[in-house]
Write a protein that binds this DNA or RNA. Structure first.
Lengths: 208, 208
DNA sequence: TGGAAAACATACTGGATGGTATGTACAATA
DNA sequence: TATTGTACATACCATCCAGTATGTTTTCCA
């Protein structure tokens, strides 16, 4: 007979510790970049020690990779892929998201930017492991936008001559650019202006 | 009578040394970020020593500020402000620039991205001195694009109902986003696709 | 032409930081 | 219950790196 569920609570302690380290590392990376993240700060934020960190991760790089694979992936999944996949009017979802970004994401989006784009901009030229992981995530993200645009196109909400693949690529890049511009200016007004420019573009895709 | 020009050729030229340090620092920042830049690497690249560096700059931060004020400013000036100010058809200049970015800038634009945007993304949330300097540069850049759009608008090349201020903000942000996307993917094809999406948008501003 | 100041070079320091070596409590088997 | 492996804690090291102290050479100028 297998051990009862009571003992299973202790195994989850390990998972919880690992998760706590990952989330603290994510916050530190979000605020200071990967190179700026200090492992001492991560363990201090969790209340743990270096022994715990190095028990779960072999080194700083592996911790960074795990943050991409487990934390950042979840964020994109929940904020974009799931809402876009389930909604019957995807174009409206995209436009709504852009228009209400600061409300939907935290206010950190203005002061700190997009955590995924920050990390990609910093590490892509320096570390191929980061680059491939983040590029894969971007491909999924772009693919979900493309699929959303195509569904809206089939519903007649978007003109038939629009190249949804190219448009998805551009929209995602422009969105990253808007968030980056707002971060440089440290201004949510800048995010509004820039976002409304992107919305104007999306509206121009509608049939005449 | 002042000393003849012959002596000006002498080995020690303060301005040239300072400039050499600035350019080496720019390259290091471009490749590794400001936090990733090592002063030892900068002096090694110039063939000088730390004594020279600390004679011309009080500390690392001041060196970084000077790179923004003197090197990056010049790059934006030469690549954007001057071409846009002198040309009779500014919209065509913008479109041409976007379409031939990799040729006009170096190939580093794909592998390393935009030096100004890189630095802004890294340092704006961390250091107010960097942020204000870079924000000022962005304002000038955006202003020149806005002026260009307005001139094209007065020439009838752009529709009268277009908000040139908002459009300039969006175009600059989208452009940064495109370069960033290409850098993440390490793909000049990505830059082409993304850039053509931006060009499509600019073309849509023309009268029907 | 001498002397002061500028323009460098050389050698060093101290703190920060990623990583390691080792010890210990505890749960899971056997 | 003895044993073993897991999940941490503690203390420490080695290196990197911004910054400094000081010496030397060149330039400027009175």
């Amino acid at each position: 007979m297998p051990t009862p569920d009571i003992t299973a609570r202790s195994e989850r302690n390990s998972d919880r510790t690992r998760r706590a380290i990952l989330e603290a590392a994510f916050q530190e990376i979000y605020r200071n970049g990967f190179q700026g993240m200090r492992l001492d700060d991560v363990v201090a934020a969790t209340g743990l020690t270096k022994g715990a960190l190095y028990h779960h991760f072999p080194n700083k790089q592996a911790l960074g990779y795990a943050v991409v694979d487990e934390i950042i992936r979840d964020i994109i999944q929940q904020a974009w892929l799931e809402p876009l996949a389930s909604d019957p009017n995807p174009l409206a979802v995209i436009i709504h998201f852009i228009g209400h970004m600061e409300t939907l994401m935290g206010g950190d989006i203005v002061t700190l930017g997009c955590p995924m784009n920050n990390l990609a901009q910093e590490m892509s030229p320096l570390d191929e492991g980061f680059r491939t992981r983040l590029d894969l995530l971007y491909q999924e993200w772009r693919g979900s936008i493309q699929a959303a645009l195509e569904r809206s196109q089939q519903a007649g909400v978007i003109r038939a001559d629009v190249d949804c693949s190219k448009t998805a690529t551009f929209v995602l890049a422009a969105l990253s650019g808007c968030v980056g511009a707002a971060k440089n200016a440290q201004s949510s007004e800048q995010l509004q202006i820039c976002g409304s420019g992107l919305i104007d573009y999306l509206e121009s895709l509608r049939p005449a």
